[in-house]
Design a binder for these strands. Structure first.
Lengths: 153, 153
DNA sequence: TAAGATTGACGGTTCAATCTTA
DNA sequence: TAAGATTGAACCGTCAATCTTA
């Protein structure tokens, strides 16, 4: 057998800290959004992607690709958001198999209310702690790993 | 109303890249563990924490604190792992309210098989992409955010 | 009454199967 | 047959309620 190549001390330290930070940050952002705006991070992402299309309207499959979500996950999620009045589904006129997702007025109001609060939280927890140099390094780091993930997909 | 302070361009770039990297990395690590070792990341974490106690035995509440998990999450998860034969629960002799969680031989075998493969994947996806300087910066970054999270808990 | 732990209900996520139209 | 999308079953995570013993 080949001996596993374990992480060295710096690597272990970095990895453990990253995992802890990540778990806590995600939990906190979720909690804040839920309490202040009654949205989950998933809801938030869907709404943001819909406002990117300035008619607030997108094909389900395109939305799934943009979000990098499985289409069934998106479909289930849209059903719940539809039930809550945040989005609506309308048939596609040119291709009867397809469906459009549209932001409702309530959905638009929800994201417009939530976004500034959410940004404030991200700033307070993350960017206020970092120098401009560290911000660029954060990008460089994430970028390298992301490239590797995509190259080995 | 006060105008929201949006993120500047570098910050947005860093944040979006981090979010994408995080989502894809987590998904990939989960998939790899599941395929190669039939374990989820959550299973893996529980098993690792149990092997830390060298008798492979821990109180449920202590385990929950170490993992930073809600106790009900852990309880549910332990039930599922018990059903699969990875752990067992035994009563605590000195405090009849408490329960110990013990690693079964199968659980020990599972983590010993999974760990080297998992480390290899982490190394290939993350640390092989980073210089020693970037590894230290990763720690510094995560550390600052983590401190902030804990200070504002 | 509080501590240690489990339970049940409910929303979230994945996988495979399905339905409809191209 | 394949593309666009939904569905149902099974597992995961959270919250509030519960059970048992200290």
């Amino acid at each position: 057998m080949t001996r596993p190549r374990w992480l060295n001390e710096s690597e272990q330290r970095a990895w453990r800290t990253y995992l802890a930070m990540n778990a806590q940050l995600t939990a906190r952002l979720n909690r804040q959004l839920q309490e202040e705006s009654q949205l989950s991070l998933a809801d938030y992402d869907v709404l943001v992607h819909l406002t990117d299309h300035d008619d607030g309207c997108a094909r389900v499959l395109k939305l799934a690709r943009d979000l990098q979500w499985e289409k069934s996950r998106l479909s289930h999620h849209l059903s719940r958001m539809e039930r809550r009045g945040l989005i609506a589904r309308v048939g596609c006129p040119t291709d009867a198999r397809g469906a459009f997702v549209v932001l409702t007025p309530a959905g638009r109001a929800a994201i417009e209310d939530a976004a500034p609060r959410h940004v404030d939280t991200v700033r307070a927890l993350v960017f206020d702690q970092l120098t401009p140099e560290l911000v660029d390094l954060m990008h460089a780091l994430a970028s390298r790993v992301l490239t590797r993930l995509q190259d080995t997909a």
